[in-house]
Design a protein around this nucleic acid. Structure first.
Lengths: 348, 348
DNA sequence: ATGAAAGCGCTAACAG
DNA sequence: CTGTTAGCGCTTTCAT
């Protein structure tokens, strides 16, 4: 199959009248190797087109120098930002990444976790799917003392290391902002309350309402997934509400874009009839009309922190397995979709 | 580091009074193993929590059962669709994927190719970066007879296996469509003409102009990258043209969205002052105003075809290394951004 | 500073 | 249908 024979450390050893052990050490830049020897080895390795056989190395050293990343989907700005952050720190530390995505399916997530475990990743960084019911599938990792760091969509049971934003507070400030615009009847479109991010945002929303003596009605809570169809659906349910709400806090920018589009098509003015705040600060928010007010949240930083934490763990050995919650900063970005025109000047 | 000792085939062999070889065969579902023996092995493997050591297997069998995928960016609908297609067929065939992205940088692409080569992927599926100057970095693959399939952004020098759409024709029909709407002065916003996709679309654009006796002026060609800033920039250059163009064919939907937004902000009506056709059929096209006419092209299918082709190669051995060009179908999607209102009925 | 030797876990002739 | 045997290429004590 392969045309030429692969170069091994023994080929180098032979030509240089050295032992394989010394070549191996030289290649790893081991301190106890003569500088000149080292240079000779490196040069020859280069000339011969030697490449490390990672399978042999990993087999022997019992580690993979690989980190698994488990996400729900690839096609979101937030996730690709997180990935960029993870990549930045893992690459610098010489780790490879295996990225798996669950398409929001619990079964797929379980299969991916199992697969990453079988691939013997040295550590795992994960965000849960919509459907995830429990975290039993991660037990194999804990049993083998392979560190796991969760981010964004996590389970906060106090036993895990997680990197999150303060979703409750985000829900609060988003809703508060709508109230500041004069909204009295604010709907909330979100996804499964099984996931921390959505339930916490919902809690923040309720706390904001309560803080302004507004009562929460359960028909103001609309649960959907994050598809295009879901947005149309949600908008139609909004339109059936009587009286119509005057504000909506939507848990995702793409969803918000679809909702706004659908509302406008039905003759509802945004923001004047209904003001809208989204979540994520996706690029789309600046391109639609009106531009979308939203919660901005630093994916890249979250990725960096998660990876840094994991690698520190790995370096420190298995003992410092203390759990922790790391909360990163997020903020409200006010654009047109939430600013009622009578108050425009005051609010911006 | 690890808490419990890993289970190996020899642990299973011992408990079952078998040889390691038989266990190995049973695990691979080798035909020459007694059904009952097979079942016993499988059951025990399961009970013991055995997991294949892929490092040992790959070391021994001299293959990785892994395919490398090299893309320019992750955050585009098109790329994630392609990935989904690739994944579908590789997973079914028992291959893993390593995905690397070059962030449109030639240096990064070279590093990634080198890395995937060092990881000993059994095959490679790739789309070139903006900056890529030549394909020398792929030579190591050809020298070792590791198959490479290119898709979308490719080099059509007749020596490679490529999966593409008919970009020339797409450019032609997009431009023709604008001409059918009455456009006489059509600009083209695109990216580096070093890449086949852009140069071919440009050729199609020119052919369409010629077919309608319109002359091409070089100031109607605007070259940009695909950032948000580039869109604003391009729009500003459009606005400086005298007279203003009455149509624009833009090589990317996101770019088109930014251009439209910027034009509108300057008081130019789309489509009536300037009609616009994009490229890619991203989700954003349906959310902006006006909705975006565009070229639709089947990422998932392209991914499936590329992967299928590669795997057939792998199965057939190195001999059937004949090169080929596979062209998949694409089509024009007409929405609001290109339909001049006087003709709306006739055109839709 | 270098070498000898063992073995990581698996597969694949070859033999029976 | 099953077992024996020999490595795949590397790292790592333990010597020297």
């Amino acid at each position: 199959m392969k045309s030429r024979k692969e170069v091994t450390i023994y080929d180098i050893a032979e030509k240089l009248q050295l032992s394989g052990a010394t070549v191996s050490r030289a290649l790893q830049n081991h301190p106890a190797v003569n500088k000149k020897t080292k240079k000779k080895v490196l040069d020859l390795a280069n000339d011969l087109g030697y490449r490390t056989n990672h399978f042999a190395r990993n087999l022997r050293s019992q580690q993979s120098k690989t980190i698994g990343v488990l996400v729900h989907e690839l096609n979101s700005n937030f996730i690709t930002s997180v990935l960029a952050g993870i990549e930045k720190v893992t690459t610098a530390e010489g780790y490879d990444l295996i990225i798996a995505h669950s398409s929001e399916s619990f079964a797929q997530e379980q299969a991916n976790v199992r697969n990453l475990f079988d691939k013997r990743v040295d550590g795992l960084i994960a965000s849960l799917s919509f459907e995830t019911e429990n975290l039993d599938h991660f037990n194999s990792f804990y049993e083998k003392n392979v560190p796991v760091v969760f981010f964004d969509r996590v389970e906060q049971d106090g036993n895990r290391t997680v990197v999150v934003i303060d979703n409750e507070n985000c829900g609060y400030i988003a809703t508060r902002h709508l109230m500041d615009q004069g909204c009295k009847r604010i709907a909330h479109i979100t996804s499964t309350l099984k996931r921390n991010v959505y339930s916490q945002r919902f809690n923040g929303y309720k706390r904001a309402l309560a803080s302004g003596k507004l009562t929460f009605h359960k028909d103001l809570l609309i649960l959907e997934d994050i598809s295009q169809h879901a947005g149309v659906d949600a908008a139609e349910r909004i339109l059936k509400l009587k009286p119509l709400p005057d504000g909506i806090f939507i848990t995702n920018d793409f969803l918000a874009a679809v909702v706004i589009k659908t509302l406008k098509a039905k003759g509802v003015a945004v923001p004047n009839d209904i003001a809208v705040v989204g979540f994520n600060n996706d690029a789309i928010g600046e391109l639609i009309e009106p531009t979308l007010s939203t919660i901005n949240y630093p994916g890249k930083t979250m990725g960096e922190i998660a990876a840094r934490n994991l690698i520190d763990h790995l370096k420190g050995g298995s003992t410092l397995a203390q759990t922790s919650t790391i909360t990163v900063h997020s903020n409200l970005v006010i654009r047109e979709s939430s600013v009622k025109s009578a108050r425009k000047k005051a609010a911006v």
